[in-house]
């Protein structure tokens, strides 16, 4: 017997400073608001927001609020157990995409879903999970 295996587990705690732009974004989520930044150099609207545009190498000072509704651009479904659906969502007015869960939808319907809207949690803490999931905007439910 030559295969002697040593098993280990190392626990490392981390705590991350969200930073100037992301702090405002997270605080906004607690108030059911979605804040984006717009680079005055390239015009890109970033959400989650960036405080500095790496493409233009300049600070971003312009903020704008986006609606909590947008377009489902892509998705995937966990194949085992209860379906977990991940979506790539472009909020109205954004140039970037949010990854989030989708709910109130069956995997088989996904190809037909175009518009989605955030479903907010009641107990919001300033986390991306303050949005429970995005749900399809069904005809007649708008407004």
């Amino acid at each position: 017997m030559s295969e002697w295996i040593v098993r280990q587990k190392i626990r490392i705690p981390f705590r991350y400073t969200a930073g100037r732009a992301m702090s405002r974004f997270l605080m906004g989520l607690a108030e059911r608001r979605i804040w984006a930044t717009r680079c005055e150099g390239c015009g890109r609207v970033y959400v989650p927001p960036l405080g500095f545009c790496g493409r233009c190498w300049r600070e971003i000072a312009e903020w704008q609020e986006l609606p909590d509704e947008g377009e489902l651009v892509s998705y995937t479904v966990r194949p085992v157990g209860p379906p977990v659906i991940l979506g790539l969502i472009r909020l109205e007015g954004a140039d970037t995409h949010l990854v989030h869960r989708l709910g109130e939808v069956e995997p088989a319907e996904l190809g037909r879903v175009i518009r989605v809207r955030a479903v907010w949690r009641e107990d919001r803490t300033g986390s991306i999970l303050d949005i429970a999931y995005f749900a399809p905007v069904r005809s007649g439910s708008l407004g």
Partner: peptide
Amino acid sequence: RRLDVNIRELITEAVTRALQDADLTMR
């Protein structure tokens, strides 16, 4: 502890100062 900035923002401070020191831009 620099609690006022995240990692990206911390680095940008140093990079910006070096560029200013040489009067250069990122280009």
